[in-house]
């Protein structure tokens, strides 16, 4: 029983940063912008979150600093791609390289220092339930936030005018502009939201996952999040499924290695990618849904003729 509980807890821990980063990138991409800088924004969020928490002793300040850093990085990206109409791929890649480098520099003096762990939320009665208590009702605030953000994003796209406008801008920026929508403005906000989520994912890494600073601790999670968005065909619910599936297979692989299952560790390490891609391809088979969700303008630069 205790073993199962531990497995479930590690799965949630492994999946949460992926979900946070992916759902933020999903909103960015639905507005028609491809930001390849997720990894860079995430690692910068991790280092500033750790530094702020370590300096002030408050994990909450750390989380706030990580969000602010993610947004600042995203706004830099937005300024380059929306205002100056720079190429999105190149700018996003540069943002990632920049983030990895700068985080290493900032983090130098913080390596090996003790971190501040973001505490779990205790819910009376619920947290005391067997199994579901510790797994579902004794998590930290970021786990709840990841679920709440995903649900809110799904609801926004389905039910609200803002969601409709974002989809419209991502689907055809010329038409949206002709109708009088501020394409760049909408995209600025979506990019900033993506940055905030990536920052939050970074905070989760350095304040919950391993509460210390390790250079390059994002370890490719930003790229996994990017891939999840595409394979989930831009659906928030499917992104959640994908993130948790990836986390599950990954953790199972680690456990399998620990108990000495005779499978090559390289194969186990690649398994999460294979399983997630296969599963998401299978559930994204519905062509109409894919057609509705795919942002047709993704990655294209838009400059209105004024």
């Amino acid at each position: 029983m205790n073993g199962l509980e531990a497995v479930l807890l590690t799965i949630i821990t492994a999946s949460t940063p992926l979900l946070l980063a992916a759902v933020g990138e999903l909103v960015t991409e639905r507005s028609g912008v491809l930001n390849l800088g997720v990894e860079g924004m995430m690692i910068m969020g991790a280092v500033t979150g750790f530094a702020a928490a370590h300096t002030t002793g408050s994990a909450a300040v750390g989380v706030a600093a990580a969000i602010a850093t993610g947004v600042a990085m995203a706004l830099l990206f937005a300024f380059l791609t929306q205002t100056l109409a720079a190429n999105q791929m190149a700018t996003g890649l540069a943002l990632t390289l920049f983030g990895i480098g700068l985080s290493g520099l900032i983090g130098q003096s913080f390596t090996g220092l003790p971190g501040v762990k973001l505490g779990a939320v205790y819910l009376p009665w619920l947290s005391d339930l067997p199994l579901v208590g510790p797994v579902l009702f004794a998590q930290d605030v970021l786990v709840y936030a990841s679920v709440a953000i995903t649900a809110a994003v799904a609801w926004m796209f389905k039910r609200t005018r803002s969601g409709l406008v974002i989809r419209a801008v991502g689907s055809n920026h010329h038409s949206a502009h002709a109708l009088g929508y501020d394409v760049a403005g909408v995209r600025y906000r979506c990019i900033a939201f993506g940055g905030a989520c990536a920052g939050l994912a970074g905070a989760y890494l350095s304040l919950v996952y391993t509460p210390q600073w390790i250079e390059n601790m994002a370890a490719g999670r930003g790229w996994i999040a990017l891939a999840l968005v595409v394979f989930a065909t831009w659906s928030p619910n499917r992104v959640a499924v994908g993130a948790y599936l990836f986390g599950t297979v990954w953790i199972m692989g680690l456990y399998a290695q620990a108990i000495g299952v005779a499978i090559a560790p390289q194969f186990l390490a690649s398994l999460p990618y294979l399983v997630t891609i296969a599963a998401l391809l299978a559930i994204s088979g519905n062509r109409t849904l894919t057609k509705v969700n795919t942002p047709a303008c993704i990655g294209q630069t838009f400059v209105p003729d004024r």
């Binding site: 005018r161 409709l164 689907s171 038409s175 109708l179 057609k291």
Partner: peptide, 23 residues
């Protein structure tokens, strides 16, 4: 001339984008 419609949206969603007020 080149319609300002959104292929990936439904008819009513397309219309809603040009009609102010509650969604």
């Amino acid at each position: 001339q080149h319609f300002s419609l959104f292929d990936a949206l439904t008819v009513v969603e397309n219309i809603a984008l040009a009609v102010p007020g509650r969604f």
